[in-house]
Structure formats: structure tokens, C-alpha cells
Computed example of a mutant assay.
Amino acid sequence: MRLQEFWGQIRSQFGDLRGESIARDHVFSAFGGRTAVAAIDSGVPVRTVWLAICEEFDVPAQAR
């Protein structure tokens, strides 16, 4: 998954404002207390981050 696809999926599932907030403000224990953006910036694969968001926010399997 590319970063551009990640942001498209975030916006598609959560809307522009909520999606931005989830990615930039929500702290994930799966990433050691980092946000999704911080995890990506530190080298966690984008797909891994997306799947963690899906798990945390109960995104339906067909949208993952």
C-alpha cells in the first residue's frame, strides 16, 4: 500500500476531518504510544498501520 492510497482509504472510511484526526492525533498502543503518522514516519509499513487502524476502529473486512 502506498501512502497516497492510505490517505485515500482514511478519507473514504472516516471522512476528511475525522480521518485526519485519527491518523494524526489518535495514539495506538500497537505502535508503542505513537500516532499512525508517527509510526509511518518511523518506518512502520503503511499497510501495517492501515490494518491497525482498521482493527482499532472496526472497519469492515471488505474495506480493509
Rank of each mutant, 00 (worst) to 15 (best):
Q9G: 06
R47W: 08
L17K: 07
L51E: 15
P60G: 05
V49W: 07
F28C: 03
M1N: 11
G43V: 07
A52W: 02
V59M: 06
L17S: 09
D16Q: 12
F6Q: 00
I10Y: 01
A36W: 03
R11M: 06
E5R: 08
P60H: 03
H26P: 03
Q4H: 12
Q62V: 15
D16P: 05
V44Y: 01
V59W: 01
F14T: 05
D41R: 13
V27R: 05
A63H: 14
G43A: 13
A36T: 04
D16C: 05
G43Q: 12
V46H: 02
G43L: 13
I40N: 06
G32W: 11
G19L: 01
S29Y: 12
E55L: 08
T35Q: 02
S21V: 08
T35F: 01
G43D: 12
H26N: 05
A61M: 05
P45R: 15
F31G: 14
P60A: 10
Q9L: 15
C54I: 02
R18F: 03
G8S: 13
H26S: 06
V37F: 05
G32E: 12
F6K: 00
G33D: 05
G15P: 02
F6W: 02
T48P: 03
A52R: 00
R18G: 02
F6Y: 05
S12N: 11
V49E: 09
I22P: 10
A61R: 09
V37N: 06
V59R: 07
H26V: 12
R34P: 09
W50H: 03
C54W: 02
P45L: 14
V37T: 13
C54Y: 00
S21R: 15
G8C: 14
S42I: 03
V27P: 00
Q62I: 13
H26M: 09
D25P: 01
E5D: 15
L51V: 10
A63S: 11
I22Y: 09
D41P: 11
L51K: 11
E55H: 06
A61G: 04
S12K: 14
T48C: 04
E20K: 06
R47K: 14
R64Q: 15
P60Q: 07
C54F: 00
Q9D: 14
G19I: 00
T48D: 12
R47A: 14
S12V: 12
W7S: 04
V37G: 04
R34G: 11
I53P: 00
F14V: 04
G8P: 06
P60K: 04
D16I: 15
G8F: 11
L51R: 11
G33H: 07
I10N: 01
F6P: 00
C54M: 02
Q13A: 13
D25L: 04
M1Y: 10
H26D: 07
S29P: 06
F31S: 10
A38H: 06
E56L: 01
L3G: 06
D16G: 09
A36Q: 04
E20W: 07
P60M: 05
I40E: 10
I40P: 08
G32Y: 12
I22Q: 09
Q9P: 07
A39Y: 01
